[in-house]
Amino acid sequence: MSEVQYQSAKTVKEAVKMMQAAKGKGYILAGGTDLLVQMKSGARTPGVIVDVKKIPEMVSVAEKNGAFTIGAATPAAVLGENKKLRKAWPGVIEACNLIGSTQVQGRASAGGNLCNASPAADSVPALVAAGCIVNVAGPKGKRAVPVEKFCTGPGKTSLKPGEIVVSLTLPKRPKGSSDAYLRLIPRTEMDIAVVGVGVSLTMKGDTVTDARVGLGAVAPTVLLVEKAAKALIGSKLDDAALDAAADACSAACRPIDDKRGTIKYRTKIAGVLLKRSAMIARDRIHGIEHRGHRPV
């Protein structure tokens, strides 16, 4: 049996060094809600585990000029309790708060959810819709990656050897903005998305002035659906615009038939959820509260 080494970093720099020294056998431990399960099943066999929870900037939320920077290892439950963040980005937060169960929420993080690189990750479509920037640190310094470019395939990211995700930055919101995330699961919780859709809108009165759409679980990576956003921008979210955006989402789907859903079903649901998410985001802009995560 190979031994697993546990190391705990106090700074980002230290963590990067440890990952570099691990020579490809290093794994970041944030909440561990994916890593430990994967180790138990034998799917991953790390040589070194680098715990980043003792790095202050990786487990906290900072606001600067209206932009929020979320430490990559901040537990989802902590995000859910941050009122300002929740008010600015209700869709991102409801997506983060769908990861796992209530118990898992105390540990699971948005950074971990992103780095696990599952196409069905709940937080990612909302982060894509939000225009989130991923802040990466590595042996060659820092770089920023748009979230939709971060994952390259199921379980694969664009991180280079020694690089780690430090934080996620959500940009400043113009007035009249909000977002929403909906996922389709056969149960009401403790489940994995068959389709997930995040929509972020900015409106002036009844008219959409800006929009972004993230679509999950229908392709090898979470998709930014620009055609759907285009269909919404300039519209009053009338049926024709919503239909066009829904069709764009369905058209963007490159899903597989599997135990969780058929190609036909996923393609259809992508459109259904786009419409419903957009309506929730619009309601939020107009001060109408939405609770509950089931798209019914």
Partner: peptide, 14 residues
């Protein structure tokens, strides 16, 4: 293909 509670979907309390 679904030998676990994630994809063998028994009802949850909610």
């Amino acid at each position: 293909d679904n030998p676990g509670f994630l994809d063998y979907r028994m009802p949850v309390a909610s």
